[in-house]
Computed example of a mutant assay.
Amino acid sequence: MMNKTAFIALAVLVGMSSAHAGDAAKGKEKSAACAACHGADGNSPAPAFPRIGGQHEDYLLQALQQYKKGSRKNAIMAAQVGALSNSDMADLAAYFASQAGPLVTRR
């Protein structure tokens, strides 16, 4: 019985992670508010704001979800993600993950 329960729990987790696959093109359309602090490509020149371009998509999605739930604390980010759906957050994560990071040069 325990193995069956563990298998079901694993299947649910796998299903949840694939349900959040984002669309980078849609994320770019939704990223205008993010650009004010993080820069258009997620590589803010201002040291006060994290560079999110090139980060792992799952990390970015998890961070956005945590800001929305309140388990990650930042008043500005909490306000920014308040109205975002899971799909919006997945799209934004996909977009910023597709950008070059601060240590990667584009050719």
Rank of each mutant, 00 (worst) to 15 (best):
N43K: 13
F96Y: 15
A97G: 12
H56R: 09
A94K: 01
V12M: 05
A93P: 03
F49Q: 01
L60R: 03
A83S: 15
A46G: 00
D41A: 08
K26H: 03
E57H: 01
G101W: 11
A97T: 07
I76M: 13
S31A: 14
A9Y: 07
A90H: 12
S98Y: 00
R72A: 15
G42A: 14
G22A: 12
K69E: 15
P47F: 11
S85G: 14
A33Y: 02
L13P: 01
I76R: 03
L10T: 12
A97F: 03
A94W: 06
E57N: 04
A79G: 14
M89Y: 12
T105Y: 14
F7M: 06
V12I: 07
S85V: 04
K73Q: 14
S18H: 04
S18M: 08
G53E: 09
K69N: 12
A19E: 01
V104T: 08
I52A: 11
T5H: 06
S87L: 09
G101E: 13
F7A: 10
G39P: 00
L61G: 01
T105G: 11
A11M: 07
A78I: 01
M2G: 04
Q80F: 00
G54A: 10
H56Y: 08
R51L: 09
S44A: 15
K26D: 06
K30P: 03
C37R: 10
S87C: 03
E29G: 05
A35T: 06
P102K: 09
N3E: 05
K26V: 06
M2C: 01
H56W: 09
L60W: 04
I76G: 08
N3H: 00
D58M: 13
D41N: 03
C37H: 09
A93R: 14
P47A: 15
S44Q: 09
L61F: 10
K73W: 02
A75L: 05
M89F: 10
G53A: 13
A9D: 10
G54H: 07
S17Y: 00
K30Y: 02
K4E: 10
N43H: 06
A93T: 04
R106H: 08
H38M: 08
M16V: 12
A19F: 12
A32L: 05
P45S: 15
A6W: 03
A25N: 09
Q66R: 13
A83P: 03
N43Y: 07
S85C: 11
G53H: 04
A25K: 15
M89K: 13
A90I: 11
G42L: 10
A48L: 08
K26E: 07
L92W: 11
C34Q: 08
L103F: 15
Q80A: 05
L60F: 05
R107A: 09
A25M: 09
A32K: 02
L84H: 08
K73D: 15
G15E: 02
F49P: 09
S98V: 00
N74M: 10
M77T: 00
K30G: 02
M1I: 05
A24N: 03
A97E: 07
H56N: 15
G15F: 05
V12N: 03
